[in-house]
Design a protein around this nucleic acid. Structure first.
Length: 197
DNA sequence: GGCCAGGTGTAAA
DNA sequence: TTTACACATGGC
């Protein structure tokens, strides 16, 4: 059996289902993907809570907020100046392309998202996978550590890591969803300090 | 008080 | 193509 599939089974048995993404609506997933860029999820969560309290976690509302007001609400997530701009960009796109995006091919959606300033590969793939249920494997810092730790891949480009998993697993949205979340769970517990286990 | 967190864009070597 | 740096808050 493929090593990547074996590792998945091990993680699943150890940590169980992760129930990602921790957001209730498609739009919340998208907003969360921006807010958590290089930021602890706990901080992104605070910003989302603020947006909810302000009844602004809605594309039509958020797009009309004053920039200063939006920045104030998302302040806990850090990098709030650029994130405010990014939230408006993705929201503007979302308002006009939501329907089209749902039926788009996974790679076409990925390209579309990558065309938005402030949306890089991880954010685009997170939105495609967790927001639109497209089978795209998300690669992040934990994934690279995980691969290095298990001797799957020492060093490579983003797509090298992505294809490593997509080729081994096949285009399976549910598995991609769970696997990425499990890698994060693994990383948070013992990914950083020790190299054992 | 320093390091890090579910990155990205830009500029210079 | 690779490397360096700015962007910012909150938890430990």
């Amino acid at each position: 059996m493929d090593k990547i599939l074996n590792l998945y089974d091990g993680l699943y048995r150890k940590y169980g289902p992760q129930h990602w993404w921790p957001g209730e609506t498609q739009y919340e997933v998208i907003i969360g993907a921006i807010l958590t860029q290089n930021t602890a999820w706990s901080n992104a969560e605070k910003a989302i809570a603020n947006l909810k309290s302000a009844k602004a976690l809605d594309p039509a509302i958020l797009i009309g907020l004053e920039d200063a007001r939006l920045k104030e609400l998302i302040r806990p997530s850090g990098f709030y100046n650029q994130k405010a701009e990014r939230l408006k960009s993705i929201t503007s796109w979302y308002l006009y392309n939501r329907k089209k995006a749902i039926s788009m091919d996974r790679m076409a959606l990925r390209q579309e998202l990558l065309g938005i300033k402030g949306i890089g590969r991880e954010t685009a793939d997170s939105i495609a996978l967790y927001g639109f249920k497209k089978p795209i494997f998300v690669v992040d810092a934990y994934t690279r550590r995980f691969c290095r730790h298990h001797g799957l891949l020492e060093k490579g480009e983003y797509d090298d890591y992505r294809l490593l998993f997509e080729d081994a697993i096949g285009l399976k949205t549910k598995i991609f969803n769970e696997y990425h979340a499990l890698i994060v769970a693994w990383g948070k517990l013992h990914g950083k300090a020790t190299t054992t286990n």
